[in-house]
Each structure stands twice: as C-alpha cells, then as structure tokens.
Amino acid sequence: MIYNIPYIAVAALILIGLYAVVFKRNLIKMVIGITLIESGVNLFLITLGYREGSIAPIYTSSPGGIMALPVPQALTLTSIVIGVAVLALMLSLVIHIYRHYGTLDARKIGGNEE
C-alpha cells in the first residue's frame, strides 16, 4: 500500500488540475491548474524510475548495488523545461489579455463575435 501513495498523488494532482481548468473562472487559476497536471505527470515519470535503496546511475567508482533508472529522469528534466516555457508563454498572454479586456474572468473575455 505504501508504494502506491505516489500513484495516488499523481491521480489526485491530475484530477485537481483538471478541476481547476474546467471550473475556475480566473485565468491565473487555470494556468495553475495546468501546472498541477504537469507536476502530476512529472511525478509519475519520476516514480517509475525509482527503486528502493538504489544509488545514482554513475558507473565510475560506484559502490555497487542497484541503480535508479536514468531515462525517466532525463524525460522529466526535458518535460520540466518545456513546462517552464509553456508557463511563461501562458502568463505573458494573460498579461496581454488583462491589458485588452481589463478582466481575467474567462467567461467575459471569450464570447463569440462576427
């Protein structure tokens, strides 16, 4: 059971993030929701590579024993970098939206047009 806690956390993070994106009106809160989903996915990737009692996967002067799998960590790092770029872009767009509409309420800025 104790080993399943990270996976429960992953599911909870993704669901909370989706909830924030779908039901929150404020654009900043929606951005936070997307970041939460991203953290959930990153946590999932990291959990996959973890082995109990393992050491860092560096072969030179290794004390022996099992090593953690480095691939998920590499994937997570890439994913985090991409996530930062997306986050920065979203926040800058939010700033522009606030300048144009004077509000951050998602229901007021959308609207259909001719």
């Binding site: 654009l27 979203m90 767009l93 522009h96 939206i97 144009h100 509409y101 047009e113």
Partner: peptide, 8 residues
Amino acid sequence: GKAVDAAF
C-alpha cells in the same frame, strides 16, 4: 485583443 485570446 481577440488574437491574444485565441492564442491563450
């Protein structure tokens, strides 16, 4: 404003 909205 609409272009920024679409991009978001």
